[in-house]
């Protein structure tokens, strides 16, 4: 069901276009035009949440399929072909098959969600996503009663994804959620940012966004979604199980073995940016804490 979660709106929080466009873009004319259609967007944000500008969101990315440097994805992702694109939905579903991206988009209702995005590396952004609820997609495929988990897979195409030529991770990238996490109204399949199609470096044409988990859970450029009854393997957990758990919920009290998770640096603050405290479940405690009632979050990190 779409529109199950609302950004807490306040009139004066609506971002004027000039605020979220960086100076560079405004000068870049053509780029600005594309966004003119957005001037009347109804999007608003939680009090105090100001989205990062387009340049930050699209130039500072972790997408190891295109290289391990933060600017590698923006430099290399142009090589990726995203049309045609289809997503194989299989496993414990009533209607398994290859779903063309256009058909998915026709069936889903896209809305805007302004979410905090917290990377496991202790930096964060605020991103105005456009997308649909994953729950709607799974419901469309028909969830069978035995399904308990959802597994996701990123495209594997080393000719176009130069980072896949190196064994940084065990390709293809895989991720997973518990079914209740996947069905949660906050869990989004993003297809756009700032009302534009999602750029390739951000995971075009469709990616997961789970705002209360570290960014690496939000798998990009998805080609396969499998409903299963077993906890699926996840890439970073395979690479280093001591550092990256299946849940990977944002939690200021559980440190990464190599650095503290108590605070984060919001991208865009320049050379003298201060850090700010990290919030439990990245600020979505009210919405999601009940999913983990009774679980020791230090053990199930």
């Amino acid at each position: 069901m779409a529109f199950r979660w609302k950004n807490t709106l306040t009139e004066n929080d609506v971002t004027p276009e000039a605020l979220y466009l960086s100076r560079r873009q405004l000068m870049g004319g053509a780029a600005g035009l594309g966004l003119a259609t957005l001037a009347g967007r109804a999007g608003a944000m939680e009090a105090g949440l100001e989205p990062n500008d387009w340049d930050d969101i699209t130039s500072y990315n972790n997408f190891y399929e295109f290289g391990t440097g933060k600017s590698d994805p923006a430099n290399n992702a142009h090589a990726l072909t995203i049309d045609p694109w289809s997503v194989r939905i299989d496993g414990l579903v009533d209607k398994p098959g290859d779903y063309a991206f256009e058909d998915i988009m026709k069936a889903m209702s896209v809305e805007e969600r302004i979410y905090r995005f917290r990377c496991v590396e202790a930096w964060s952004m605020v991103v105005p996503w456009n997308g649909f609820e994953l729950a709607d997609l799974l419901t469309m495929a028909g969830i069978q009663s035995g399904a308990k988990y959802v597994a996701f897979e990123t495209l594997y195409r080393p000719e176009e994804m130069v980072g896949q030529k190196y064994a940084v991770l065990d390709w293809p990238y895989v991720e997973g959620l518990r079914l209740d996490e996947a069905m949660h109204p906050l869990t989004l399949m993003a297809t756009g940012i700032y009302g534009r199609d999602i750029p390739k470096q951000n995971g075009a044409p469709l990616r997961l966004v789970v705002p209360w988990k570290y960014g690496f859970k939000s798998i990009k450029s998805i080609v396969r979604i499998t409903l299963t009854d077993k906890e699926p393997p996840t890439s970073w957990n395979i690479a280093n199980g001591r550092e990256y758990g299946f849940y990977s919920n944002v939690n200021p009290k559980v440190d990464h073995p190599r650095w503290s998770q108590a605070s984060e640096r919001v991208i865009g603050g320049g050379l003298f940016a201060r850090k700010q405290p990290t919030l439990m479940f990245n600020g979505y405690e009210e919405e999601v804490a009940s999913l983990y009632a009774g679980m020791d979050l230090g053990t199930f990190f």
Binding site: N52, D56, S59, Y60, K70, S71, I267, G270, L271, A273
Partner: peptide, 15 residues
């Protein structure tokens, strides 16, 4: 570069 945006969106780590 760090002061003028030449080190990207997160200049501290980059520096």
């Amino acid at each position: 570069l760090g002061l003028t945006g030449g080190l990207g969106a997160e200049p501290i780590k980059a520096l």
